[in-house]
Design a protein around this nucleic acid. Structure first.
Length: 291
DNA sequence: ATCTGTCCCTGGACGC
DNA sequence: TGCGTCCAGGGACAGA
């Protein structure tokens, strides 16, 4: 599931395929939950526009257009933003893949889950946004227009400080993991990196946020930044659906210490990793290392 | 203001 | 082999 590192890796690699190119036309699927801006308005608003810049805000990508409108994308759980030249079995659902000859199983063809298809005036490679579960979002903001989803976001998780975390945690009786997942506190951390950061900081995810000492917050903020940076370096986590825009897998899943390792041995103490629910999310920790 | 539970969606894993 | 059931979860929202 794309969190800050996956979105940042996507930004870096899809940037060259967007910035400086003029969109000629846009193909979409039917109106759905996925489109915060209705598809017809999206198609009309994007046709003829040139992309000037591609930025990231937490887990959102923000493409600046030549008319000062902004195209905002969120990859949700299963979103994939990629080049027409990308090849990866992750871009094809298993059912469809099984019907293909082996040599065709890497080649992507737009399917019912390909909600956005950008065709460029230069005739070069198209860009696709595919999202099987439609938890992703597409939003076109006119010049100067804002949106509560964006306005609500806290500071970027790469800039999270112990001081800020400590301040945000005061009076909070909910679990510290819920605090990390709260995008109004810091934006970009999701389920994988919350668990990984808490493990590295040796803090139990279920602990009440308000009980953290300042030094705990310093350690946790440091762990959040470190784990995100390390994941960006390795190309993100390809656990289920995530692929980079060129179809490449990330490698951070091989450096996970707790996420989706319930029942397995802790890499530090050998104890058994436990899986519980916190804030309705699967949560993984080592009962011995994280007190 | 904060917190919890529910909902959106669909493929894949698993059990019989 | 094939069907049914459950699970994954980002984030908005309603209600406590």
């Amino acid at each position: 599931m794309p969190e800050l590192p996956e979105v940042e890796v996507t930004r870096r690699r899809i940037g060259p395929l967007l910035v400086g190119r003029r969109i000629e036309r846009v193909l979409t699927t039917r109106p759905s939950y996925f489109f915060l801006t209705p598809p017809a308005r999206l198609r009309a608003g994007l046709a003829g526009r040139e992309v000037r810049d591609l930025a990231r805000r937490g887990k959102y990508l923000v493409a600046e257009l030549d008319d000062a409108a902004r195209l905002v994308l969120h990859l949700g759980m299963t979103g994939q933003l990629f080049s027409a030249r990308a090849t990866s079995p992750r871009l094809i659902s298993a059912g469809a893949r099984s019907a293909l000859h082996p040599e065709e199983q890497l080649r992507f063809e737009p399917d019912a889950h390909t909600h956005l298809r950008l065709v460029f005036a230069d005739g070069g490679p198209e860009v696709f946004f595919r999202d099987v579960r439609k938890f992703g979002k597409v939003l076109l903001l006119r010049r100067g227009q804002s949106h509560p989803r964006i306005d609500r976001l806290g500071i970027d998780a790469l800039e999270l400080s112990g001081e800020a975390l400590f301040a945000a945690s005061r009076g909070r009786r909910a679990a510290v993991k819920a605090l990390l997942l709260d995008q109004a506190v810091a934006t970009g951390v999701g389920n994988i990196y919350a668990d990984e950061a808490l493990f590295r900081a040796r803090i139990r995810p279920t602990r009440r946020a308000g009980s953290l000492a300042r030094r705990d917050c310093d350690a946790l903020a440091e762990a959040v930044r470190a784990v995100l940076l390390r994941s960006i370096e390795t190309g993100g986590s390809s656990i289920r659906d995530y692929v980079a825009p060129d179809g490449a897998d990330g490698a951070f899943q091989d450096e996970r210490r707790v996420y989706a390792r319930g029942g397995e041995a802790c890499l530090v103490c050998g104890g058994r990793i436990r899986r519980v629910l916190v804030a309705q999310r699967g949560t993984h920790y080592c009962p011995r290392c994280q007190r």
